[in-house]
Amino acid sequence: MMKKKVLVGMSGGVDSTVSALILKEDGYDVEGVYMRLHTKPGYHEIHQARAQKAADFVGIKLHILDLEDIFKDKVFDPFIKTYEEGETPNPCALCNRNLKFGEMVKFADKIGADYIATGHYIQHDGKYLIQAEDDTKDQSYFLFYIDKSIVPRLLFPMGTRKKSDIKQLAASIKGLESFALQPESSEICFVETTYTDILKDYVNVDNVGEVLDMQGNVVGEHKGYMYYTIGKRKGFTVKGAHDPHYVVSIDPKKNQIVVGQKEDLACYSVTLRDINMFDDRTEFESTVKLRYRTKAVKCSVKIDNGKAEVKLYEPVFGVAKGQAAVFYDDNKLIGGGWIS
């Protein structure tokens, strides 16, 4: 009987390397792929070499996919545009849909791979994505936007494992020790320092503007609206203020930010666009995460005509337009959308 072929996304990191090793030991016909995405100077020279070293260690073929143009169109340009519009982007979710679980799937079809695997910390049951056993590393939030039709073809060897165990395993295998010692990758791979350092190359970020209070009075100034996201409490002046002030809203057209007290950040409902559900429910109760690394809160959801109205059963602070809202039924990811 022919072995089932699996294409593994290889980054050169410990998680994808150990994933490839586990799948090979489990009897799959494994091939790897390294995806060249952004154009950050020197990044691919280092990471492609690591991915090749990992593939050589596992003993598998490594394909190189040049996706820089698609990445620019589908991920990087929307990243810039979202900040220009005074919102907060989530480039990882767009990258997962369009490239890591989009272009990679197309390439898997091209080489006749039955399955697609990555080193993400997540699980699935054939229909729904399920949070990882290691809740400190769970990446389900960033995968809410992938096409549900590919879920049965996905393999996530890290989903039932702890990150600490993976590092320990890598450290114990001769030839993999250096992978165990690599630092954690940054949350957004093309941002090395701050996102504004990236924006400065494409748009005018430094543009002094007015700070308004909740009543519309000018109370200070800021250095340019793109420096701020909802909930930020530093980097602007408020005359005579003794208590902390937080960014409550951003007006990109007027280059103004509105600030208030922490209670002014409380949000009890959100509207979502571009809904992506893993089943056909349109009116339900669930929990929702409105930002990565935040607690999921109980809510009711009503979906109609591609939009969702979400009522929160407790306030969430610092909700930002452009971020993802992801619905869970216990540990099962059932869908989500973009906060508008």
Rank of each mutant, 00 (worst) to 15 (best):
M1A: 14
L7R: 02
G9N: 09
G9Q: 06
A20S: 10
K24R: 09
V33H: 04
H38A: 03
K40W: 11
E45T: 11
I46G: 10
Q52Y: 13
D56C: 07
V58G: 08
I60E: 14
D69I: 10
D73V: 06
I80T: 03
T82A: 02
E87G: 09
N90Q: 06
P91C: 08
C95Y: 08
E103S: 10
E103L: 07
V105I: 15
K110V: 07
I111N: 03
Y115I: 01
H120G: 01
Y121A: 12
Y121T: 12
H124S: 03
D125W: 05
G126T: 00
L129Y: 01
Q131L: 13
E133T: 14
F142D: 15
I146G: 00
P152A: 07
L155Q: 07
F156K: 02
F156I: 04
R161L: 09
S172V: 00
E177G: 03
A180K: 03
L181S: 11
I188R: 08
I198M: 09
K200N: 05
K200T: 05
D201E: 15
Y202M: 05
N204I: 15
L212T: 06
K223G: 13
Y228G: 03
Y228M: 07
T229W: 02
V238A: 03
D251M: 03
P252S: 03
Q261F: 13
L272T: 02
D274A: 13
V288S: 00
L290E: 08
R291T: 08
A296L: 06
D304R: 14
G306R: 01
K307A: 12
K311W: 09
F317D: 08
A324P: 00
D330P: 00
I334Y: 00
G335Q: 01
